[in-house]
Structures are given as C-alpha cells and as structure tokens.
Design a protein around this nucleic acid. Structure first.
Lengths: 249, 249
DNA sequence: CCCCTCCTGACAGGGTATGGCAGCAGTCTC
DNA sequence: GAGACTGCTGCCATACCCTGTCAGGAGGGG
C-alpha cells in the first residue's frame, strides 16, 4: 500500500491515514482549489485510488457537503457550509504567522498594522494552547533594516484598487524627470524589496509599471476606472503570458 | 446488528451507519449537549456498544477534538475544534492574502499548502463569501522561479520544534565536508531566499546556524530536547543582542 | 467525433472495527 | 470512608467494511 513518496505531494506521506482524516483533508483540498479539481488529483494528493476517492466524495455528499461533481470538469465546492471548517492546524497557524510577519516587515504601513490585527483576531478566536503557539512560533522572515522608507502610495493604491478610482501620480523616470498622470492601478507586485504598481496609464494609453521608490507624489481622485479592474487584470495577465511564455502560474 | 428501535433515541435509526458517519454524529451530539455526557448515553444514541464508543472518542481526540473525559462525570467538548466565524477588514484580508501568497512561494511544501488551506478556511468561516475577494486581491509577491528546490528538512524541523525532539542532521560545510550531528532546532529564519535553521548543536555544545541548502540528510528522532525550547530561544536572542547590538526586533 | 471525467457495479482479500469481558483508577454521593 | 458511577485499557475471535482493480455507462468540452 505504501504509495511512492515520489508522487506524493506532502499530505499523503503517511500511510496510516484513516478514512475520517481523509475526508477532512478532501474538504480542505476542495476549499483550497478554486477551479474544479478532478478526482484523480485529489486521489493522488490523499494517496488512495480513484475509486476510493469517488466513494469518499459520495460519503461527504451524503453527510451534507455541498460538493458538485460534473463529468468532464471535476469537483467544485459550492458556497454554503455543512460543517464549519476545523480549527487551524499547527501547520496552518505557522503559515499564517510567518506570512503576517513578512507583511509586517513591508513598507506599507497600513497593511503592516492590518497584518498584526488579523493575527490578533485569529488568536482571539483560538483556544489558549494555540494562542501560545502563535506567540511561540519560531519562524521568522529576516529583513535587512534600513530599506524601511515607508511607501504611503501603497496604501492609497490598495484603497483605490478596491474602489476602482483613478490615482494621480507624480513619477520620476530613470533620468529623474517628473511626469504627472492619472493611472488605474491593477496589481501590486512585491519584488525583491521593491514594490511595483502595475497600472493602466491614461497618459500613455497602456499598461505601465511604477516603482514606489520613484513616486514623488500621489493623490486619490474620484474618477472611476474606465474599465473594470478584473478585465484590466485579465488583459494584463494575457499580455505578460505572451511576452514571457511560461510565466503564468 | 439491528439494534432495537425501542431503545434508539433518534440518531441510531438505521443500521447502515459506518464509522465515519458515526464520528460526525458523535461530534454533533457533543456539540449539542452542554453538560457532560456519559459514554453510555452516546453509545445508545449511536446504537453501538460502549467499548466502541470509547474507541470513537479516542479517534476524535486523535483527530484533534478537544474532548475532556472525566471519570465519574462524562465527556465535555471544549470550544476550539471548529473555527468560529471570523470577520476581517479589507486591509486585514489583503494582509493575510499577501502573506499567505508569500508563504506559498517558499520551498517548505507543507507550509505552502497549509497557507492555502488557511486561506480557504478563512474564506468559508466568514459570513460573507470571501473566496471571490481573495481571488480578486491584486497584490502579489513575485519570486524568481527556479529557486524552488524543495527543502523537506524545513517541515521536519517545524514538526520537531513543536514536539521538542532532536533532529539528526547531515551537514556539509563550505568545503563540502560532511558532518553528522544531533541538533535541537530553535528558530527558522527566512533570509533572502535562503532558509536557516538555528539550533543548539549537541556535537559542538552551542548554537549553530544550518543553511537548508547545505543539509544533505535529515532525520527525526525521539530524543527530547535537553532544555525547553523557549529557554533556548531566549538565550539565543540574548546572545544575538549582545553580538549585534541594535538587533532586537 | 474523441477525450476527459464522473459515477456505478462486482469481486476478492486483508486489515480492522466491533462486542464482550475483566480490571484499574479516578470522581461523586451519601 | 464506603459504594456507585464512569472513564480508560487490554485481550481476543469474528464479522465486516474498506480498498484496489477491472469493466462499463453517461455526460460535458473541444
């Protein structure tokens, strides 16, 4: 029965996984993937045969889980719960803590304090032993101090992205020459200590990247985006995929 | 196995109840009753023998359910097994998503999927449907692909840190010479794409740093730490603060 | 039209879940 | 302090269920 360690992602490491545990794991996996998942994928993740996984899904559905299975597509977990999810596992807690700590070390002040608050809320909702574990987690992202020029434009851009309002930007190019323009932020990328705002530039009529350390002025406007951000986002992804094949995640 | 319908309360109506379903039912029953419930009651509700129910409870506890069984009293389910509803502000959600995405891009496979699971749980634990907003969050950490040598030692070290058990390590120094030793992991640091395990080295009798990319073999042991991890951690911090003044977080 | 995928049925084998019993160790009541 | 109640564990034989394999049907997508 020992499934090959090669194929196993990580969950299926141990053989001694009883059915109940597997059912919870399948629920987790369904929640994790947002696109339809095929039974074959789930089966391999859990280290069981496809037949068994079909049976497991039937069990879950019988238990009331809102799982849709469509031939030719895969399984999707409909919204609506039949059981609240299980409390965060030790792994999940460590992941959240590490992630939050990393965000806290980034120059977006608003996001930084929000990360701390979020951890606090999670700790409040957790039993005492997990609270200790949160505080005790010995996993740290180490940043070199000094790069900590706060970049207030990041918080601004996040807010405007949510509300789809244009951002007025004063930007310096490599030669230090300033231009002023209105842009529609589409994505924010954190790249090796730099932050880059990807936006539709109304001045140039195309996508442009703006490094936050070259932003000399930023101001919110009430101008709505000319197009929906999700559409812009999709288009930008397509452009990137074309330009850098093999980029798409 | 047809138990008499007379005794059955309501749950044990049908014989065709497999173990998994029964476990869910027991959880439900424990959640319903506020006061302690005796095994005998639960057993009758489920239409199984008391012995079996004891085993079921053990299974549930093994699954992580915080069930207190006290002799002469009965079972009580402490809160903390299911995730209570969580509310996050837009900022907090973005912080969590960005953090989780960063963790997902790290070479610790277990932590990576745990980050995804945690996001999924947060999404379903919320009153609103956060799945779309999570998917819509346009903030990404960008990693250069290719550094993705998975480092299984990280997951091992995390587990051992939690359980305070020694790690047997085969390690290559700068000259490529291998040494084998037992260490007590204290901290894990993520530093510019490298991961470093800070541990008490039983071979040298002091703290040492181990880069994961120089680990050639790693194995869990059952040897407990000689000292509590929190004490080691505090001592290491003191050492660092002494060595590099102005380092403290 | 073909491929992918969900889904069901049958079957055999091996692991394991189950029940009964006996005993120990705590808690509560009187 | 005694006795009743209850959680918990070990042992054992048997029945059962869980699993993988094989085969086939139905439906969606390209």
């Amino acid at each position: 029965m020992l499934q090959s360690v090669v194929t196993a992602g990580y969950a299926a490491i141990v053989a001694g996984m009883d059915k109940t545990e597997r059912l919870f794991a399948v629920m987790d996996a369904l929640r994790r993937h947002r696109r339809p998942v095929t039974a074959a994928v789930l089966a391999e993740e859990q280290g069981v045969s496809v037949r068994t996984l079909y049976r497991d899904v039937q069990t879950l559905i019988g238990l009331g889980a809102p799982i849709d299975g469509e031939a030719g597509v895969g399984y999707v977990l409909r919204p609506g719960f039949f059981l609240p999810p299980l409390m965060f596992s030790a792994d999940e807690l460590e992941a959240l803590v590490l992630g939050a700590r990393w965000v806290q070390s980034q120059p977006d002040a608003g996001l930084s304090t929000a990360a701390g608050n979020a951890l606090g809320k999670i700790a409040t909702a957790s039993p005492d032993d997990l609270k200790d574990r949160i505080a005790d987690t010995g996993i740290w992202p180490v940043m070199m101090r000094g790069d900590l020029d706060p970049a207030p434009v990041l918080g601004l851009a996040r807010d405007l992205m949510r509300r789809e309002r244009a951002l007025r930007l004063g930007y310096a190019d490599e030669k230090g020459e300033r231009t002023d323009r209105e842009v529609w932020p589409v994505q924010i990328a954190y790249y090796e200590g730099k932050q880059i705002i990807v936006a539709w530039c109304c001045l140039r009529g195309g996508f442009r990247n703006f490094r936050t350390d070259r932003v000399v002025a930023a101001e919110a406007t009430d101008q709505p985006y000319g197009r929906r951000r999700s559409d812009l986002s999709r288009e930008w992804r397509a452009l990137m995929a074309e330009k850098y094949p093999g980029w798409g995640r």
